[in-house]
Amino acid sequence: MFDRKLDIAFWDHDRMQALRDGSVAIDGVDPTFHSGRIVTDIFERMIKDRAYDAAELGLSYFLRTMDFDDLPFLAIPVFAARAFRHSAIYINRASGIAGPRDLAGKRIGELALYGHDAGVWAKGILSDTFGVTPDQSRWLVGGIDFPLEPIDWVPQPHPSGVAVEWAGGATDLGALLVDGELDALISADIPKAVLDGNPAVGRLFENHVDVERDYFRRTGIFPIMHLVVVTRELAEERPDLVKAVYRGFTEAKAACATALARGMTFNNITVMIPWLSALIAEDRALLGDDWWPYGIARNRSVLDTFLRYHWEQGLSKRRMTIEDVFVPYLLDD
C-alpha cells in the first residue's frame, strides 16, 4: 500500500539503479524518478523550482541554501558522489609550477562556481597540507569544453581578499589552460586537452592515485561531493517517509556493491574494464568492504572537514555543524 507519491531526482549512478529499475522499493512510497541532461540540471530544478521531494545536490550547492532566509532543505546521509580530488588540479606545464606551493601568485581557473565541490576539497587540502590558501592566487570561474551560463540560482560569495572573476559563458577554461592564459585549473570535470594527452597540460599530482591513497591512509577521508536532500516540509511532517527513502537508497547501494563483489568470482566479465576485479580487491583492502559508506557515524570526520573548509573559504556565513544540516532522526545512523 502506497502512502504517498514522491518525486525523487538523481543522476545515473550505478549505486541508485536498483531504485530506478524497481528491484529495491521504498516502503510506503510511490516514487517517480527524474534525472537531467547533466547533473547540475537536477540541482537547478531543485533549488530554483523546488521541483522534487528529494534530490541529489552538490554539497556546496546545498550548503549555500542554508543561508537562505527560509531554509528549504535538510540532508539525509546518502552520498551520491564521492571522489578524491588531488587529481582535480591541472597545470600548464610552462607555468613554472613544480609543486603545490608554486600555485601561490598564479592565475587559476575553476569550473562553474568559486567553490564548486571539487574546488572546496582541493583548496582545503592545499591549505591544510601545503599552506597554500586561496587568497594567494587569482581566480577565473567559467566552463570547460562547452558553453556555461552563470549559475545565478545560488549565492556566490567569496572573501573580499580573494580576487575572483567570471569568465563569460563562451569562454573555455581548458583552452585558456592550454594557451597559458591560466597557470592552473581546478575542475571536477577532466578537460578535453588532458584526456587527449595534450603535452601543454598535466596534473599537479601526476601520481595522483598514490597520493590519494596515502591521503586516505593518513586522514580516513574519502571526499564527499554530492548528497541527497529532502524538502524541509517533508522532513518535518513525515519522518517515516524520509527514513524509508534513506533505507531505499541504502539498500540500492548495497545491492550494487554486492553485485560488484560477487562479480569478482567471474572476473567481472560483464564490465568492459580490464583488471577491474583486482582494483575492487585493492580498494576493499584500503577502504573496507563497505567502501562507499552512508550514514553519519562513518562519515562524521569527512563531513565536518568539508563544513570547515566551506566556512574557511568564505562560502558559509557561519561555521555549520552536522546537526545543523541533517535531519535529526538520522543522526545516529
Rank of each mutant, 00 (worst) to 15 (best):
E44R: 15
G115N: 06
Y90A: 02
E181F: 03
P134G: 06
L182I: 13
L286D: 11
I89H: 01
A163M: 02
A75M: 10
L204M: 12
D67H: 05
R37D: 15
P157C: 13
W292K: 08
G22E: 04
A254C: 08
K106N: 06
A297N: 11
S187T: 05
D179L: 14
R298D: 09
A184E: 02
I26P: 00
D53L: 10
A51K: 08
G124L: 00
A88W: 02
F84G: 12
L173I: 07
L241K: 03
A112V: 03
L6I: 13
L260Q: 03
I144W: 00
I273P: 01
D27H: 14
L204N: 02
G220W: 10
R203K: 14
D289E: 15
A175Q: 09
D240K: 10
E56K: 03
A83C: 05
G99I: 00
R50Q: 09
H310T: 07
S137D: 10
F266K: 15
V39F: 14
P150Q: 12
D30I: 04
N268E: 11
P223L: 03
E149D: 15
P147Q: 13
R262W: 00
R213C: 11
A9Y: 04
T65P: 02
E212C: 07
G119E: 02
F266Y: 14
L103R: 10
D152L: 05
G115Y: 00
G99C: 12
T258S: 14
L195M: 12
D21Q: 06
E323I: 04
E251S: 12
D183A: 14
A257Q: 11
F62I: 01
T40N: 15
V230Q: 01
V178F: 05
N299T: 00
P77R: 06
R203L: 13
V201K: 00
M320F: 07
G168M: 04
P72C: 07
P328W: 00
